[in-house]
């Protein structure tokens, strides 16, 4: 019985149109094994679907996986919709194929960490444990 502790709930979402969800699934599985509750929303989610799911599920972390290259267009929209819903304190992190040059502007947008290909899942777990409140 460990009900006293607050469970960390994480939304894993794939915005945009690419169909590559293997990475998202591997991360979702690793977070599950770390004892988190992972809400997996599947492929091709609109920014609105992601923000609304984050609100209804009351997650502390949103993990975005994207390989289509549309992150500079979709991520600002997601951040805006989260803010509109009063979810500014959500820890937003991202993974997938994100060029070096884009990392700085994305962080400025409020995306706290970006995990590229080859990141050990333990690193993501540790990051969430340390930073999720």
């Amino acid at each position: 019985m460990t009900e006293a502790e607050q469970k960390i709930r994480v939304l894993i979402a794939k915005p945009g149109l690419d169909g590559h969800d293997r990475g998202a699934k591997v991360v979702a599985r690793a977070l599950r094994d770390a004892g988190f509750e992972v809400i997996y929303t599947g492929l091709r989610q609109t920014p609105e679907q992601i923000a609304e799911a984050a609100l209804q599920e009351d997650v502390t972390v949103v993990g975005l996986s994207i390989l289509s290259g549309a992150h500079m267009r979709l991520f600002p929209e997601i951040m805006k919709l989260l803010k509109e819903r009063g979810m500014d304190d959500t820890l937003v992190i991202a993974g997938g194929i994100i060029p070096e040059d884009d990392i700085k502007p994305l962080k400025k947008l409020g995306i706290k960490a970006i995990f590229g290909p080859g990141t050990p899942t333990t690193e993501i777990v540790e990051y969430i444990r340390t930073n999720a409140k």
Binding site: R29, A34, F36, V38, Y40, G42
Partner: peptide, 15 residues
């Protein structure tokens, strides 16, 4: 104690 909650995948069109 972890969980993968995947039911929402099928119902997320009502956002």
């Amino acid at each position: 104690g972890g969980a993968l909650l995947g039911d929402r995948i099928r119902m997320n069109r009502f956002a």
